[in-house]
Computed example of a mutant assay.
Amino acid sequence: MTSSQVPITSSELANLWMAYQEKTMVLRILEHFIEHADEEGKQLLQSHFNDAAKNIETIKSIFKEEGAVIPVGFTENDVHKGVPKLYDFMFDIMYLHMMTKVEMSLYALFTGMAYRKDIKDFFIKLTAEAQQMNGQATSQLLEKGVLSRPAFVSMPTEVKFVKDKGYLGGFNWFSETRSLNTVEVSLIHHAIETNLVGMQLMIGFAQVAEDKEVQDFLVDGMKLSKKIEIDLGEFLRQSYIEPPATHAGKATASKIAPFSDKLMMYNTSLLCSFGLGSNALGGAFSLRSDLPAKMALLAKDIFTYAQDGGKIMIKKGWMEEPPQVEDRNQLTK
């Protein structure tokens, strides 16, 4: 029996379904960005658009072969052509940089959950494409001077081992509590960088949302991103490190929506999931007790916010249901 003759597993079905949702959403976002991009940015965005369109067709083919219904995802009804651009200089590439980070994490996870060779190879391909695109976006942002590099540090000249349990303690202005180590700095920088882009995304979304309940929710998301940036930035400042910042990628003054409220809510939900994963990673790899504690509090805020968003999406009829496992309990009734 060839790999394509082996039925796909529940994990493979779920992850293909999730990939379809994410890819169709990104396609709609890119359509708006490409419409307003400069020539250099347009080439990069179009390349990612073309890859996404091909991958969507691959997922459709697999579903058809397996006799599964094609998800709705996001269609041409979720993007409005010919409207003013919602974001200013370089935000399109900043968004691409952020979303390829999400894709690298997501598809690497899906690869490890795939068992059929063609499905595993497909997710490996998606991971590689996201990595390549992230590298190109990073290079372009650095060339334009709109991406802050993490702090430079002196290179270690000797290997050291922790000898004092005080190493695990939190920050205290009046004690000899240690500064952050490079592992902790890297995770904080990543979280702040992502939330800076997320904050501008929420500002733009909130400006153009048609539904008042959605608008209020997106304003709350803007405030939450700002809170995360400020709270985590303070950890860097305590170690005399300036948090990342950028002068580019702001929301314009446009009040005309390029995207449906449904799409903006899903994009926000996806970033919440990514934020929860990043916070869990940051807390797990930090050896300073105050940082995991802060990460846990922020994770609680993100989780509560994501739940509120889910309730709105269900109320509006925008939450597409993932494939369901057969309810065997019905047989006992």
Score class of each variant (00 low, 15 high):
residue 202 M to C: 15
residue 66 E to F: 05
residue 176 E to S: 14
residue 274 F to V: 06
residue 75 T to W: 03
residue 156 P to T: 11
residue 316 K to V: 04
residue 96 L to H: 11
residue 111 T to V: 09
residue 308 D to A: 13
residue 75 T to H: 04
residue 18 M to R: 08
residue 174 F to C: 05
residue 22 E to Y: 05
residue 312 I to N: 01
residue 253 A to W: 02
residue 121 D to S: 08
residue 318 W to H: 12
residue 106 L to N: 06
residue 118 D to G: 14
residue 52 A to D: 03
residue 227 K to H: 05
residue 125 K to N: 13
residue 256 I to A: 03
residue 108 A to W: 10
residue 149 R to A: 13
residue 8 I to T: 15
residue 33 F to W: 08
residue 245 A to T: 08
residue 132 Q to W: 03
residue 285 F to K: 12
residue 145 G to C: 07
residue 212 K to C: 02
residue 195 N to R: 08
residue 78 D to S: 10
residue 226 K to M: 02
residue 76 E to S: 05
residue 322 P to S: 12
residue 239 S to V: 01
residue 290 D to E: 08
residue 317 G to W: 11
residue 105 S to K: 14
residue 298 L to E: 15
residue 76 E to D: 15
residue 215 Q to W: 01
residue 330 Q to S: 10
residue 237 R to Q: 11
residue 175 S to V: 06
residue 70 I to G: 04
residue 297 L to C: 15
residue 71 P to C: 07
residue 133 M to K: 03
residue 322 P to R: 11
residue 311 K to E: 14
residue 49 F to T: 02
residue 222 M to T: 00
residue 37 A to I: 11
residue 96 L to Q: 12
residue 252 T to S: 15
residue 3 S to W: 15
residue 120 K to I: 06
residue 332 T to R: 14
residue 18 M to K: 09
residue 89 F to S: 01
residue 263 L to T: 08
residue 43 Q to G: 02
residue 7 P to T: 13
residue 130 A to P: 01
residue 203 I to H: 00
residue 264 M to C: 10
residue 30 L to T: 13
residue 321 E to Y: 05
residue 283 G to T: 13
residue 73 G to K: 03
residue 199 M to R: 15
residue 77 N to I: 03
residue 228 I to R: 05
residue 150 P to H: 04
residue 288 R to E: 00
residue 55 N to T: 02
residue 9 T to V: 14
residue 240 Y to L: 15
residue 160 K to Y: 12
residue 126 L to T: 09
residue 271 L to F: 13
residue 244 P to D: 07
residue 253 A to Y: 02
residue 249 G to M: 03
residue 114 A to I: 02
residue 165 K to E: 12
residue 112 G to F: 04
residue 191 A to T: 03
residue 156 P to H: 05
residue 207 Q to C: 00
residue 323 P to V: 12
residue 282 G to I: 05
residue 272 C to M: 04
residue 42 K to P: 03
residue 98 M to E: 09
residue 255 K to C: 11
residue 327 D to F: 07
residue 107 Y to C: 04
residue 207 Q to I: 02
residue 62 I to Q: 00
residue 275 G to Y: 00
residue 214 V to N: 12
residue 14 A to N: 12
residue 56 I to L: 04
residue 26 V to S: 01
residue 17 W to Q: 11
residue 51 D to R: 05
residue 123 F to E: 01
residue 318 W to S: 05
residue 40 E to W: 02
residue 171 F to L: 00
residue 322 P to V: 08
residue 231 D to F: 07
residue 176 E to V: 06
residue 67 G to Y: 05
